[in-house]
Every structure is written in structure tokens, then in C-alpha cells.
Amino acid sequence: MIRTRTTWAALVLAGAALGAAALPAHAAPATTAVCPTGWGSLPETDSSATAEPVTQVRTGRHACYDRLVIDVPGAARDDLGYSVQYVDRVQQDGSGRPVPVDGGAVLEVRVAAPAYDPGTGTPTYPAQVGHPLPGVDLTGHRTFQDARFAGSFEGETKFGLGVRARLPFRVTPLDGRVVVDVAHTWTASG
């Protein structure tokens, strides 16, 4: 019985050695993602505007950043204005009421598109001022901590995005959406 165990142990060790030898020489252990650099934390704006309404807001998690996407179907990239900047507090346009947003730092995200049909005034995005964004779950996000609707007034829609700290971000307007990426760190690795 002892001889059988010894034989099995020898076979397992030999198999492990062969398995290790079968790995290509260039295989390396997984490393931290190399993240883009060159983003900053200063305001980013574009003064364009569209009458196309906001219909949805969603988020995503990536190796180097968290992403906020504001959908404005039918709007051309060149017509999508925006303003994204760090603020001490987010205020509702028109009334000036503060919109509480949790986080170590707060980004005010403004899109030059209404959250209602301009012809009828009917809401196109089902959010309530001061409440979390409908359908947005921030569980597992490294950077995003809170996302609140700050209202839609005179053709512009505003959101408060609570982030872990004042971190670099970028804004990318695309056909039908505005994308805001906020990095996990200031360094070039995730």
C-alpha cells in the first residue's frame, strides 16, 4: 500500500513538472492593466446643443476607469454639448436647491439636451430630482460612489456623480451619446 502511494506521488510530481515545462517561455503571470495617461481634472465643455432628448443613463466598469453613458438617440456628435467639472456641490437649475451627492469628490455632468420632449413637455427619462439614477447600480465600481439626477431645465439636463476622490476624467461625445470616463487612479496602472 505504501509502495502504491509512493508511485502515485511520483506520477503526480512528474506530471506537474511536465505541465510546467509545457508552458511557453513567454508566458508571464497576469499583471496590472496599463492605463491611459494624459487625462486631467479640469473642466471639459462643448457649447453645442440639441433638441433630441435624453432617454437613458447607464454605467460600466473597466480595468482602468468607471464609465457613465448618457444616451441621446438621434443627436449627432457635433450637436451634443456638455460641461463636466468638479464642484463643491450640485444645485438644481432654476430653483438653486442643492442636490446631495455622496463621494470624496463630486462631478457635475451637464448635457445640452432636455430630459423631456420639447414639443409636449413629456419626460423622456424617468428620473426624479435628488434621487439615484433609475436602473443604475454602482455595486462593484471602483471609482463611482453615487449618481443623482439634478433635473432638466431649459433644454439642459444635469447629473451629480459622486466619485471616490478628485481623479482624472475624459469626456467623449459620440453620435447618440456622451461618455464620461473617470480613472481609478492618477497613475498609469490600474
Results as ranks from 00 to 15, higher is better:
Met1Leu: 15
Arg3Ala: 12
Thr4Glu: 00
Thr4Asn: 00
Arg5Asn: 01
Thr6Arg: 13
Thr6Lys: 06
Thr7Lys: 01
Ala9Arg: 10
Leu11Ala: 08
Leu11Tyr: 02
Leu13Gly: 01
Leu13Arg: 00
Ala14Val: 04
Ala16His: 01
Gly19Arg: 04
Pro24Asn: 15
Pro24Asp: 13
Ala25His: 14
Ala25Asn: 09
Ala27Gln: 14
Pro29Trp: 12
Ala30Gly: 11
Thr31Ala: 15
Thr31Trp: 06
Thr32Trp: 06
Val34Glu: 11
Cys35His: 10
Thr37Ser: 12
Thr37Ala: 05
Gly38Asn: 06
Gly38Glu: 04
Trp39Ser: 05
Gly40Gln: 10
Gly40Ala: 09
Ser41Phe: 11
Glu44Pro: 09
Ser48Gly: 14
Ser48Thr: 05
Ala49Leu: 08
Glu52Gln: 15
Glu52Asn: 14
Pro53Gly: 14
Pro53Asp: 10
Pro53Met: 12
Val54Glu: 08
Val54Met: 15
Thr55Gln: 15
Arg58Met: 08
Thr59Met: 03
Arg61Thr: 10
Ala63Arg: 14
Cys64Ser: 13
Arg67His: 09
Ile70Arg: 15
Ile70Cys: 09
Pro73Glu: 09
Pro73Ile: 04
Asp79Asn: 13
Ser83Thr: 07
Val84Ile: 00
Tyr86Lys: 10
Val87Tyr: 15
Gln91Ser: 11
Gln91Glu: 13
Gln92Ile: 04
Asp93Ile: 00
Ser95Phe: 06
Ser95Ala: 09
Gly96Glu: 09
Gly96Val: 08
Arg97Ala: 11
Pro98Glu: 12
Val99Ile: 14
Val99Phe: 04
Pro100Cys: 04
Gly103Arg: 11
Gly104Val: 07
Val106Thr: 15
Leu107Met: 07
Glu108Gln: 15
Val109Gln: 15
Ala113Leu: 11
Ala113Lys: 05
Tyr116Leu: 05
Tyr116Pro: 06
Asp117Lys: 10
Pro118Leu: 04
Thr120Val: 11
Gly121Val: 07
Pro123Ser: 08
Pro123Val: 05
Thr124Pro: 14
Thr124Gly: 14
Tyr125Leu: 13
Tyr125Ser: 06
Ala127Leu: 03
Gly130Glu: 02
Gly130Ile: 02
His131Gln: 13
Pro132Leu: 03
Pro132Ile: 00
Pro132Tyr: 01
Thr139Asn: 01
Thr139Ser: 02
Gly140Glu: 00
Arg142Ile: 00
Thr143Pro: 03
Gln145Trp: 01
Asp146Lys: 00
Asp146Ser: 01
Arg148Ile: 01
Phe149Gly: 06
Gly151Ala: 03
Ser152Ala: 10
Phe153Leu: 01
Gly155Glu: 05
Gly160Gln: 07
Val163Ala: 08
Val163Gly: 07
Leu167Gln: 05
Arg170Gln: 07
Arg170Glu: 02
Val171Ser: 07
Thr172Gly: 05
Thr172Met: 03
Arg177Glu: 09
Arg177Val: 00
Val180His: 10
Val180Glu: 10
Val180Ile: 13
Val182Ala: 03
Val182His: 05
Val182Met: 02
Ala183Trp: 07
Trp186Met: 04
Thr187Met: 07
Ser189Glu: 12
Gly190Glu: 14
